[in-house]
Structure formats: C-alpha cells, structure tokens
Design a protein around this nucleic acid. Structure first.
Lengths: 333, 333
DNA sequence: CATAGAAATGCACACGTTAACAATGCTATT
DNA sequence: AATAGCATTGTTAACGTGTGCATTTCTATG
C-alpha cells in the first residue's frame, strides 16, 4: 500500500508528529516511556522513513560517490573489485554507495552537494582533473585515491608506485639482468608515468642503457600485454627480462612467450605490478609489486566519513607503501 | 555559496516560481520566448535542481540498486566488473547506480520504494531469497539476474548454466576422456548445482560412472581450485580431465598441476566455466563456457528501465545461451 | 503556599519542487 | 459587440521530515 508516515504513527499514538519524530531520533526531550511506546507502534506498522524528505530538510543526501576515470579500457576488474570492497566494508548502513565511470557522465549536473555527501575519486589520469576541480568547486567533501593531485586542496591517498617500480627494477638488476624492457601502461595515466620513472631511475643508477626498442606501449589490458611482448620477442637483441606495468599485461605477455614454445622464466623473465588476486596462481607465479588498493580505499572511505561528521581534516597527502613480492617468474642469470 | 533555487530564478526573471519550474521542464504551457529567457537565466546562475525536493513530490528517487549476494567469497572480480559495466552502459545520466552486497546490510530498512525506483539483483544463492521476497513485498520494480527464482513474480534473466556444463562435459567425452572429475562451486549457490547437474547428465548419458572421489568441493576462488586439484592429483586413480566450475578455480587448478612438474594438457586436461577476461590468455588458453554476464546485465537494466517508465512487463523468464569455447587446455586422447 | 525552573509536548513553519485550479488577457467567431 | 475559448501566468497547497519557540504540567525550593 501507500507507505506509513510519522503522522500516521502520531494519530495512532495520540501525540503530535513532532513527538514521533523526536522519539524515533532518540531525542532526550521525550519521556522514555512514550519513546518506547512510539517505537513499538512504528515497528508494528513497519514504518520506514522517507529519506527524500529527511534529505530535503537536513540538507544531506546519504549518498556517497565512488568514481573511476573510466569503467572501460584501463580499469582492470581486480582494481574495481578491490576498491568497491574496501569502501563498502567501511560505510555503514546509513549510506548508499554510487559507482560510476566519470566518462559516463554527459554532464556533471547531478553531481552536487545536495546529491552527494561526499565523493571518492579513484583517479587514474589527469583527464579527470576537471571533474576533481568541479567537485571541489561545489564544495563536496572529496577524497582522491590513487593519483597525487595538484592545484586543488583535497584529501589524497596514493600508492607509492614510483618507488615500487624502482625496487622491482633494481631486483631484476640484482638477479643479473642487464637487458630489461618495459611494457608501459595506458597513455596519459599518471601511474604509467610513475612506474616508468621508477624503472628509468633504477636503470640509470646502475648505469644501464636502455635502447629505444625496449620501451613498448600498452594500455593495461591483457591483449596489449600480449601484443607488446610479441614485438619484443621478435627483436634481434631480445631482452632477458620484461617489466610489465600491471599484472594483466604480464599475463598476456607470458602467453605470448609460451605460445612461441618458449618458457618463463627459463627463456625470458617477466615481472608485473599490482599483485592481482590471480597473480600468485599464474604459472609460473608472478613476481610483482603489491599495491594495497583495498586498504587504501578503506582508509579513504574512513577519512571521508570522519570529515563529513566533523568537518575537520588534518593530513592531506598519504603515501601507501608498495611491496616487492618475489615469486617464480624471474630467473637469476 | 548556498545553492540557487527556482525561486531565486523567478525573482530575477520577474515571474512566479511555477513558471520557472514549467520552463525548465519544457512544459508546452509556457511561451517559448519566456522559456528561453528563463533557461538562460538559470544557466547563468548555474542552477542545479534539488533532487531531494523533486523526489519528495514526484515519489521517485532516481536511484537504481545493483545488489550482489555478497562482495566477499564467491563473487569473482570479473563477474562484478562485467555486471557493473553492463548496467552502467544502459542507465542514463538520470539515474544513480548503487552497488552493494546483500550481506552487508544489517537491516533492509533503507531498501524501499521511496529509496529505489528499481532493483537489479545478481542472485547467486537461495540465501538471498528473503531479500528478493522483501523487495517484491515492498513492490519495488525488480529484476533478478543469474539465478532462476521461484515463488516470486519477477523479471528473470539467467544464463543456461546446466546446458553449458552439459555440452562442455560431452566435449570432454568426445575427446576420449572417461575419467572426468569436477571441482565444484560454492556450497549453496544455485550455479553450483546447475553445473553439477549438467556434468552428471552428460556422463550418465554416455554411461560413464563417476567415483565419489571425483567430486571435490570448492568455493569459486583461486585457492580452492588449487587445493582441490592438489587432492585430485594425489588420487591413485587420477582423472584424465577436470571440469572446474569457474575459470578462477581453473587457474588455481592449473597452478597445482604445473607446480608438481606436470603440464596441462599433456598430463591432465582442464576446463573451466565463465570465460573470464583472462581465460584466453592463460597458458595454455583455457577451454571453457562463455557466460554472457555483461549482455545479460545490460538486458536486465534495459528491461528494468522500461518497466519503470511504462509499468508494463511481458516476458518473465529469459534464458541466455551459454557457449562452448574451445581452446588449448583439453587434449584429445 | 507561592513560584522558579525543569520536563514533556505541541504549534507552526521551513526545506525546494510540482501540479491542480484560478485568473488574466487576447483572438476569433457569431 | 458579446462571448467562447485558447494561451499564458499566478496562487496555493502538498510531499514527509526536523526544529525553534511557545505552552503545559509537574517538582522542588524558599
């Protein structure tokens, strides 16, 4: 039927709707006995509050946004999964989590303070800078994950990709590799740049020169890893190790190796980045860098909620440690 | 600053707020010239409507729910990803998509007609039957994906898992296998049952007896596939082929094979189910059954939107064809 | 006993939007 | 010229909830 309102309850309880509102919100103004009585009646009528009405007067939407740069190419399934899980673990029953790709919005019209109590942006590219600025402009409480953002004052949680890539590359060098290629991430993504820089930094420090042909572009998906590795394998001066900028591409790369009758790591070593759920179960198990996306998402969500409650924020940029995970896909030579 | 309302616009335009409302909603009642003038003013003040107010009076929330049985064990990353992508592709700017695990709700309180214009349930288990009944009871427009649901009148979109499993198993038999084991899905999930039944049906039809030890339980995640295959490999009468009830477990299973120095498919054949994004890139590429989750989600979302618009639904159960995908992980013997 | 003050409840309005109905001015038809 | 009818705009109430202020009742204190 039509839903019951506090006025219906009031009528039945013989009080005003004000008293009902206060009782259900546990106001100290109300006599404990009446309070209990009203709550009982409400339960028996199985009343559920109209959040639209509440939102209107309280100026809160109870909506939280989790936005990705895109839900299409560049965002891996594991990445999405971990982020959603992390955030959903933190938010209580009181909030709705709205998930969307920024590039799915034709206009940002609907994104404003009335509609969102807060926003988490899983930012992967400079391309969403305009969205970040828009949200900041609208004074929506804002947490940006994954990418360090400049120019705008936001709460920022990012994994230290560069030093992760650095340590991984250094590890390859320590295993005796001197011919190390890189399969890069999606063009324009900040993470692509950070990982390449870590890679270059390590090689430069050890005085290793990288020929142009060892830089191969990819876009973070499986196929691009496969295609890139295929190119590398046909090089006259084939590398002994390949750093793939994420695990998806590493899986594709390994495939390219095995389908030529070669093997990892005997004929060529492969390393990845992210430590996806599946990476430990690849054959061979993938050496990679763990990026704590779920923890980072959880921390971001907690911070956002606290900010919404207290309107007070302290720290603005938090770096999350990335960790070298050594498995079996790199050979010592 | 504080946001602008239609009354502010009205004041500036020298008309009543009703006229503004009508103008912005393209009512034919309004003189085209005033309409344009008002729209211009609204844009210049960069007005954005308060959806809470609109929701209150129109009795629509502009929220759509996409609910999973759980976001924890049993839901693979690829599954979540495809579903979200499919639905988000369909819904327009006008709707918010709220993603959540049903088991994350302490109480269903917030789930009601006022808060959700419609709900998609990606149902994986009988355990969410109570949620489905709850939503149906509240008369929320409801689409159930992935699992055929009984007892409740809903719009239902499900992949034909059983016949997929049947065809896959029959294929294994055609390749000469007579010792075929199964690594099962999560206990209590409907898909687990359907796939087992397809498997049994095929073997029974070909008069093949399955020893008790060939039924090994799993829970759809990588580790369980690994553990289950480890058990099978230690059997005195080792199977020649193993049907893993999803691709994640197949990956784990392959791992168990290779880390014993054996190889797929030379020493043992492995098949999966789902056709995850990564399956084509495994080594060897996985023979599996494609389950069109993204298409199915898209179809479900379209149906839901149409129902919300027209309040009219025709067909109630739609079966989606599953397709055998033959790759390299099964040997002919 | 008078009264100050606390405890409990109600009245009335606000939030921003839509829509039924009323009102106004104008045109065309008789 | 009177009037019916159309085009356009305004008046007012409604959606369900929360809250400042007024009101009532009761208790304790001098």
């Amino acid at each position: 039927m039509s839903s019951v309102t506090i006025k219906d309850i009031a009528k039945l309880a013989g009080v005003s709707h004000t008293t009902v509102s206060r009782a259900l919100n546990d106001s100290p103004l109300i006599n404990p006995e009446t309070k209990e009585r009203i709550k009982a009646i409400a339960a028996s009528m199985n009343y559920t509050p109209n959040y639209s009405a509440r939102s209107l007067v309280l100026d809160r939407s109870y909506n939280l946004g989790l936005f990705f740069t895109t839900l299409h190419t560049g965002t891996s399934a594991g990445f999405l999964y971990e982020a959603i899980k992390g955030v959903n673990d933190v938010i209580k029953d009181g909030y709705n989590l709205i998930v969307r790709g920024i590039d799915d919005y034709k206009s940002f019209h609907k994104v404003n303070r009335k509609n969102f109590d807060g926003i988490l942006i899983m930012s992967q590219s400079d391309s969403d800078q305009s969205f970040i600025e828009y949200a900041s402009d609208k004074e929506i409480p804002l947490v940006v994950l994954n990418r360090p953002v400049e120019g705008v004052q936001v709460m920022n949680f990012v994994p230290d990709d560069q030093s992760g890539a650095y340590r991984l590359t250094e590890y390859l060098v320590q295993q005796g590799h001197r011919h190390i290629a890189i399969i890069e991430g999606k063009q324009g993504f900040k993470s692509t740049q950070a990982r390449r820089e870590g890679y270059c930094e390590a090689l430069h420090k050890h005085g290793i020169f990288v020929p142009e042909a060892y830089y191969v572009s990819g876009n973070y998906d499986l196929e691009s890893g496969h295609a890139a590795m295929s190119k590398l394998l046909e090089l006259p001066d084939r590398p002994t190790a390949v750093f793939c900028c994420n695990d998806d591409m590493a899986l594709g790369a390994v495939k390219a190796v095995t389908e030529r009758g070669l093997s990892v790591p005997e004929d060529i070593s492969v390393a990845g980045f992210d430590d996806n759920l599946f990476s430990a179960f690849m054959s061979p198990a993938l050496t990679t860098v763990r990026r704590p996306i779920e923890e980072l998402s959880r921390a971001g969500a907690e911070k956002l909620l606290k900010f919404i409650e207290t309107k007070h924020s302290e720290q603005s940029l938090v770096l999350f440690h990335t960790e070298l995970v050594i498995r079996d896909s790199v050979k010592s030579i």
